[in-house]
C-alpha cells in the first residue's frame, strides 16, 4: 500500500474564526513503512491523523488530496469515507482505551462493531481469538468488561479491534501516552508486530514522545504549527537533524546518561504561534536561532537527501 498526501489543509471553525490547524502538508508513506509523526501540542499531528479518516465533524476541509494505492481517498466526504474506514484505513484515536462502553462486554462490543461494517461476527471469532493470543491476551478477555482490564490490556484490545479487517494503513494517535513505561514498551512492540506479521501494511504513529518513535519507527516526520518541518529516516533525524526546530527539540530531551550537573540541556524559549492568525513566512521564525531575512518567506518542504525532506532556508 502507499499513501500519498498532497497539500492537505484542514481548519477548525470557531466563533473567532478559522484555526489553521493543518496548513498544507505533503508527504508519502511507502508500503510496510512505520512513519512516526512527532511534535508538541498544537502542532497539528492529531489533526492530520484524524483528517485521514474524517474523524472529527468540526473539521473543515479546505483543500488538498490523499491517494491510497493510487486511488483517491475521499477524506473530504464523511459518507464516502465510510467504505474505507476500518477496512482500508483504520484509526486508534487518542483515549480510545477509555472510550470503550463500560456496560458492554468486550466480545459483544466487538461483534457489534463488525456487524456495523457488514462482517459476520461469528465467523470472525476464531480469527479474533488468534489475534488476542498474538498480543498476549487471553480469550477470556472477550467475556470481561473494560473495567476489569488494566491500561495495557485495554490498549492491546483496542489495537486488535482496530486491525481486525487488516487495514492497509493504521493510524495510532498517542497510544502509549497514558501507560506505564513497561506497558509502553509492550504496546509499542505489539504495534511493530502487527506490521511484521503483515496484519497491517503501513502505519502512522502519532506521539509527542520522540524516544518511542526512535525505537519503532522507520521514518519520523516532525510537525510545527500546522506544517511539516522535517521528514527523514529515524537514524538520520535523531542523529543528524537538519531543521533547527528538530535540532533544538532533540537536544532538549533528557536521557539516562545526561545529568544537570554535567551538561545542562536547554529548551526552546517562547511558544508556538497562535493558529487563528499565523504569522507570514516560516512559522518557527520567532524562536529560531538561525532566522534570517529570507525566513519572511515561507520555506517549501523540499527533498534534501535520500528520503529526507526539510522546510527551512537555512537547513544544513
Amino acid at each position: 500500500m502507499s499513501l500519498q498526501v498532497t497539500d492537505l489543509r484542514v481548519y477548525y471553525r470557531t466563533l473567532a474564526g478559522d484555526v489553521k490547524a493543518l496548513d498544507g502538508v505533503t508527504f508519502a508513506i511507502a508500503d510496510g513503512e512505520i512513519m512516526g509523526l512527532a511534535g508538541e501540542s498544537g502542532c497539528g499531528k492529531s489533526t492530520l491523523g484524524k483528517s485521514l479518516t474524517h474523524f472529527d465533524s468540526r473539521m473543515r476541509y479546505i483543500g488538498g488530496e490523499a491517494l491510497l494505492d493510487g486511488a483517491p481517498l475521499p477524506v473530504m466526504d464523511s459518507a464516502a469515507m465510510d467504505e474505507f474506514r476500518f477496512k482500508a484505513v483504520s484509526i486508534i484515536p487518542q483515549y480510545a482505551m477509555s472510550a470503550m462502553n463500560p456496560t458492554r462486554k468486550i466480545g459483544r462490543m466487538t461483534a457489534d462493531l463488525l456487524r456495523s461494517r457488514g462482517v459476520n461476527a461469528a465467523a470472525m471469532r476464531p480469527e479474533i481469538e488468534r489475534r488476542l493470543e498474538l498480543v498476549g491476551l487471553e480469550r477470556s478477555v472477550l467475556d470481561r468488561y473494560p473495567i476489569e482490564l488494566s491500561g495495557g490490556m485495554k490498549q492491546r484490545m483496542v489495537m486488535v479491534i482496530s486491525t481486525l479487517l487488516d487495514p492497509s494503513l493504521l493510524i495510532a494517535d498517542e497510544i502509549t501516552s497514558a501507560l506505564d513505561v513497561s506497558t509502553q514498551k509492550a504496546v509499542a512492540e505489539t504495534l511493530v508486530g502487527f506490521r511484521d506479521r503483515k496484519l497491517v501494511r503501513s502505519m502512522m504513529v502519532i506521539t509527542h514522545d520522540m524516544s518511542i518513535l526512535s525505537q519503532i519507527a522507520d521514518t519520523i516526520t516532525v510537525m510545527y504549527a500546522g506544517k511539516l518541518a522535517e521528514k527523514a529516516p529515524t537514524d538520520r533525524i535523531i542523529g543528524e537533524p537538519s531543521h533547527p526546530y528538530t535540532r533544538l527539540l532533540i537536544s532538549s530531551l533528557p536521557e539516562v546518561g545526561v545529568r544537570y550537573a554535567d551538561r545542562r540541556l536547554s529548551g526552546i524559549p517562547g511558544s508556538p504561534p497562535p493558529l487563528l492568525d499565523p504569522p507570514v513566512g516560516c512559522r518557527f521564525r520567532m524562536r529560531c536561532p538561525l532566522a534570517s531575512a529570507a525566513c519572511e518567506q515561507e520555506p517549501p518542504f523540499v527533498q534534501v537527501g535520500q528520503d529526507h525532506s526539510v522546510a527551512c532556508w537555512n537547513a544544513e
Binding site: V181, Q184, K185, A188, I250
Partner: peptide
C-alpha cells in the same frame, strides 16, 4: 531501566 525508550 530496560523499558525506558532511549533516543540513541
Amino acid at each position: 531501566i530496560a523499558s525506558v525508550p532511549h533516543l540513541h
